[in-house]
Design a protein around this nucleic acid. Sequence first.
DNA 1: TTCAATGTTTAGAC
DNA 2: GGTCTAAACATTGA
Length: 309
Amino acid sequence: MPELPEVETIRLGLQKKIIGLEIKSIEIFNPKTFQGDQNSVLNAKIIKTWRAAKMLGIDLVYPSLRAKLGNLKTNGIALGEAPRNDVTLLFHLKMSGQVIYQDEKSTFAGGHPTLDMKDAMPNKSTRVEFTFSDGSKMYFNDQRKFGWVKVIKTNELDQNSFYKGLGPEPLDKEFTIEVLKERLLKHKAWPVKVVIMDQATIAGIGNIYAAEACFDAKLDPRVKVSEMNDNDFSELHKGIIRSLNDGIKYGGSSRANFVNAEGERGLFLDYAFVYGRKGKPCKKCKKPIEKIELSGRGTFFCPSCQKKK
DNA sequence: TTCAATGTTTAGAC
DNA sequence: GGTCTAAACATTGA
């Protein structure tokens, strides 16, 4: 499902719509999808959205608490000492999750691509429905029920087991060639495609972008880290950033839909060089793209452009 | 009918 | 501990 670019596409779309709204009610259609106390986010106001790896976060605060903090400040008590009770909604879309926002004017949908994304909600895949203070709604859909929504205390995010183990964000400035090399060398015996998909090594890369990054770096996905030279690390670094940025630029591979803004569909898969193109001619050399299994995942590559060692 | 699907976790084997 | 494989989660559609 959604990898980094798809989740970022969702975040960018939601960001414009939901900042400042309060959550008025939550309906849970599948109990396993929603973890934590739903009551602790009711009437809370959305102040921020963020993304870490493939995880989406929505930070909320209680307006009444904010007001109290203001009073405390005027009484001369340092803001930093005031008790905080902010909450965060954490989303992980796993393989088939979608987030859909609807108000009276438009629908915005991102995540796993399905034809019914822009139809009336809730539908049979809807697991959680949020209703906001202005009457607009947000749906968490998930066909395979692998995904989840969690309520946590914002300051306890560090204790989230998935968040805790994440490697560096590949689109951060700090993600240099040296950082990439150092992270990868922790697993010298792993195939390059497998190691860059490991969330503890680098955050946010999944099966599509791993394949695209290997193509960009002209590396056979089976090449082991120990076989890579400095030029390979450099090319791979470029390839990772290029493919992720292209994904965001084209609205993600999951066909984000702004229904009332014609033509704004996620198109990344149209631009993909190898993913999902078994037997089709390589866009660079015209030789057919091959598909193999690597570490249990379907793996596409061009046997001519991508070099073995 | 069988298989594979944009993810993560866990268990077991060597 | 490192590495690899398989299975589990659950559903749908080719």
